[in-house]
Amino acid sequence: MFRKLSHFSILLIVMVAAILIMWGLTGTDFMSLGNFQSMAYQLPELGVLTLAMMIAMLTSGINLSIIATANLSGIVMALILTKTFPPESALINSPWLVVGAILTGLLVAIIVGLINGFLIAVLDISPILATLGMMILLGGVSLVLTDGYVISGFSPTMLAIGNKDWLGIPVPMIIFLACAGFMSLILNKTPLGTRIYMFGSNPVACFYSGVNNKVVLFRTYIISGIFSGIAAIIMISRFNSAKADYGESYLLLTILAAVLGGVSAAGGFGKVSGLIISLVILQMISSGLNLMGISNFFTLALWGIVLIFVMIVKYVIDIRAQKRWNA
């Protein structure tokens, strides 16, 4: 309990520090409504993808194929949105086409999740290798589907998802919060959630306790796939296009954000609340630096530094707690 709390409190302190520093450096711009809104448009993409990564990490696995899944799912959506009817047809702007495209895209993401689950649960391939292979394979399928080109030009309904707001709250933010709420519900309020945490700490003992480990793994990677598919909706809508290699740099960032949020690299521990704070910290740094006109790449470096800093602080606290325990 002490350990979990302490990670959360370190995060809170870092978050407050990030706000104050960015405020101090950028002046009132940072605390403006406009800046908060733009942050709220940017955070959800990485946020939903991080949820997809997090659930795999909780089972002491990893899902390297989330970005490739999102791209494939987004490409399928984009193909349906742009290629099912001739451009002059009225149907191409129908909201029902958007619904159909999204559902098909999500179905693709679910199928990918099923395949990942099969590779990991049934064939017993380690998650990192199974999803690495899937990442490369799916990237290839996306390339073949698109010939390596960008598919762009969606209907206003589709664009609204990524770019409109509802009562001042950007739609992507609403989607992210819904996903985070859903994830939190699964982890804290369903038998599956308890099993995920238990499995992540000791799959053998779970097996001997009558937990159907295969089912847990299948569901984990299907949920991970669904989140990837939802991220795809936000991504293609915001970019107004889909492509085989969008967002590849997000992959390692999702691991970074999850670990920063307190998800244990060894599995079994991690909460959605920590993850949200971690995403907010990363977004604050990014937006603050952006306002100061500092390169995005400096943001990357700073994110890496913050991660190592938090891990070191955690290590020092752990060591002290251990010493107290021994004494």
Binding site: L252, L253, I255, L256, V259, A265, I294, S295, F297, F298, T299, L300, A301, L302, W303, G304, I305, L307, I308, M311
Partner: peptide, 17 residues
């Protein structure tokens, strides 16, 4: 894996800046 993901971003980010 965590350390080197972080240092990847640090080395690469700073260099590009």
């Amino acid at each position: 894996i965590i350390t080197t993901i972080a240092t990847l971003n640090i080395f690469y980010g700073l260099l590009t800046v």
